[in-house]
Simulated assay, not measured.
Amino acid sequence: MVQGCENVRPALRRAPRVSYRWVDPGMALQEPGVLAVFGFGTGVAHGADPRWLSVDLESFDAPTPLEVWQVDGPVTHGRVGEVQWSCGDGWLFAAITLDEALHGGPRDTAAIAYAQLCDFVAARREHHVQRIWNYLGDINQGDGDGERYKQFCEGRAEGMGSFFADGFPAATAIGHRAAAMRLQVYLLACDEPGERVENPRQVSAWQYPRQYGRTAPTFARAMTLPGQDVLAISGTAAVVGHASAHEDDLLAQLDETLVNLETLLASAGMPAGFDTQSPLKAYVRHPTDAPLVHDFLQHRLPGVPVLAVHGDICRRELLVEIDGWRYA
């Protein structure tokens, strides 16, 4: 039986509002329409509410804001096995956190995580997955096909099976430095399909050549959410065609990344540029680069909310990656 939230959706679909806010997690979870709340780093509290997720990425900001997703109307939530979830107004948040020590390494852990998430979402009315985030430890460890990211890609493909036969959602995959080798996967889904967006400057990820692993990455560059002009942007870096650009040159990589972001906006028919209502997240490989990334983005994207976190990019030569949202 297909399950869904028992609330009436409005005639005009409205996407979740995403914001960075300095607020107590308990207070945020009490606000109307809160679909999910994310805390970053080892110092954040661990709560029992299924809408709360403590993310294994350290922030460079002190104090660190929370990321809050809100929808119109009431929200219900619960747990099914190892999946935590919440839904409201036709939108679904679902997440799973697995310890590799219990599941056999990055490949098997990814396969289990995706199989459980896909089984859960398939039974929901909100089964159109728009956006996925993947955080795993030591993403660049290992050589050749034994690299942990490539192993993760193989397990992800196995776990999802044919679930995304009609096309992949937008996604991010980043490495964390937490002591526990945990895989965290969370997603945003809807009861209506979105529209996938590719970047004409880049080869589509699922068409990458063999040098990037036995199993190509499986994601779209962005997704236009249902009902209004909101773009969910995948992790975007200095990749042109399928090759990394500007090795060891942080400023050049940042500049190339912004070109790719603007190209995505144009491909989606969105207005150029980002504004105060369009939060971004910057994943920075080296903590010593964080001040330079901060200054660069403040200068190039004045007023745009940017949360900078310590994260390893899926390719060793890439120093920074940016994802986020564009609200028209």
Score class of each variant (00 low, 15 high):
Y212K: 07
L307H: 08
I112T: 15
A245N: 09
T276Q: 15
D248F: 05
H103G: 02
A272C: 01
P217K: 07
A189I: 07
D24N: 10
C87L: 12
E198D: 12
H286D: 13
M1Y: 13
G159N: 06
G269L: 10
W22G: 12
L292I: 04
V23S: 08
G227A: 08
Q70V: 09
L225R: 08
D24L: 12
V75C: 11
I313C: 11
G43M: 01
L261D: 01
P65T: 08
Q253I: 01
G155L: 04
E247M: 06
A15S: 15
G90C: 08
R156K: 14
L301S: 02
D99E: 13
P16K: 05
G4Y: 07
T172E: 14
A157W: 00
D89W: 03
P217C: 07
L318C: 00
A216K: 03
Q3P: 02
G273L: 05
G90Q: 09
I313Y: 02
T218G: 14
E256N: 11
V75A: 11
T276E: 15
C87M: 14
A171V: 01
G41D: 06
R177C: 10
P16A: 10
G73L: 04
D61P: 00
R131P: 00
E154H: 03
L187Y: 04
G311A: 13
Y186M: 10
L301N: 00
